[in-house]
């Protein structure tokens, strides 16, 4: 169920718009086509099946309630959906962080090193462009951006994981983001 082809993207946009008009059948079809992708995203960030299931459920209940606000001129449906699931997962991670403040050792997870696409994952043209731009970054900065994106870690957590001062991590990421914008925007 790839969402990398333009035709598939259009179809997802249409389904999300229909869901926004209370079309339950379209919503069910949208779930069928996108839930595996979103579940993969949640699992990657949360590392816990039960939590990922809860976040996935929250995500789609929000999708149903907010689908009317989806604007395909601003973002494609898949971008909107992935963003929503990431936001929910990040909220969950931040909640945990507060619960874990008494035991900061738990925050120092190992660096999630998976720079290449998962086996079998198809990538879009957008990804391929982004990948080219990422490769122009310093290796450490590139891996920090990926680590941040895939784990939803804060600056503090990233600095601890990569064993660099907080200020260094902030400047790596900020410089990378600005460089990416310059590289990506025509």
């Amino acid at each position: 169920m790839s969402v990398t082809s333009p035709a598939e993207r259009d179809e997802l946009n249409r389904l999300l718009q229909q869901a926004g008009r209370n079309d339950q059948k379209a919503f069910a079809e949208l779930y069928k086509r996108t839930s595996s992708k979103l579940f993969g995203v949640c699992l990657r960030m949360l590392h816990d099946r039960g939590e990922a299931e809860e976040v996935l459920q929250e995500t789609y209940t929000t999708v149903w309630r907010r689908a009317a606000s989806f604007d395909s001129a601003k973002a494609s449906a898949i971008t909107w959906l992935v963003t929503l699931s990431r936001n929910k997962a990040i909220d969950r991670l931040r909640q945990h962080r507060e619960e874990l403040l008494d035991d900061p050792s738990k925050l120092n997870e190992t660096v999630d090193d998976q720079p290449t696409p998962a086996a079998g994952a198809e990538t879009s043209q957008e990804y391929q462009r982004l990948q080219q731009c990422l490769e122009e970054l310093e290796p450490q900065q590139q891996s920090s951006v990926r680590e941040a994106f895939f784990t939803g870690a804060t600056y503090n957590e990233l600095a601890a994981r990569c064993k660099v001062p907080l200020g260094t991590m902030k400047s790596w990421i900020r410089r990378s983001l600005m460089q990416l914008r310059t590289c990506l925007d025509p």
């Binding site: 579940f39 993969g40 990431r86 879009s124």
Partner: peptide, 10 residues
């Protein structure tokens, strides 16, 4: 968000 392309489906 295209970075999410690299995450496998589950």
């Amino acid at each position: 968000i295209p970075l999410a392309d690299t995450i496998g489906e589950v």
